[in-house]
Amino acid sequence: MSENTNLKESILRTSGVNPKKCMKCGKCSGTCPAFDEMEYHPHQFVAMVEKGNIEPLLNSKSLYYCLTCFACVERCPRSVEPAKLVEAVRLEVIRQQNQNHLTANDIPAKLDSEIPQQALVSAFRKYAK
């Protein structure tokens, strides 16, 4: 429970979203272009984070189907901004320790002139800790 509470607080802090403002109108899911690919839909993200039921979201591929098109952010009548919440859950997964698919030492070997500069900067920032 306490771990879930910490997780929820962390997600709310990084996203700046207040899920209590949601009036459950469903406009986010009504507007979402990736709705059909998602196991958990935008309105469910909001409800599940609010309930602290975050584990299933962390393990769901739904996280990566969100296009961050911000249609839900634009149209939400309560300014809940679900896409920011999805992004925060995604960051929660990426930031977990010992989940790295790479180490900092692996990076130089993988360098390629095709890789965008920005991706390299991000990779070093993440793995150089």
């Binding site: 459950k24 469903g26 406009k27 986010c28 899911s29 009504g30 507007t31 979402c32 709705f35 059909d36 839909h41 309105h43 469910q44």
Partner: peptide, 12 residues
Amino acid sequence: VQGSDLLANEQL
């Protein structure tokens, strides 16, 4: 019209 049916958890 694209909208959600929350009770069916569907996008219509």
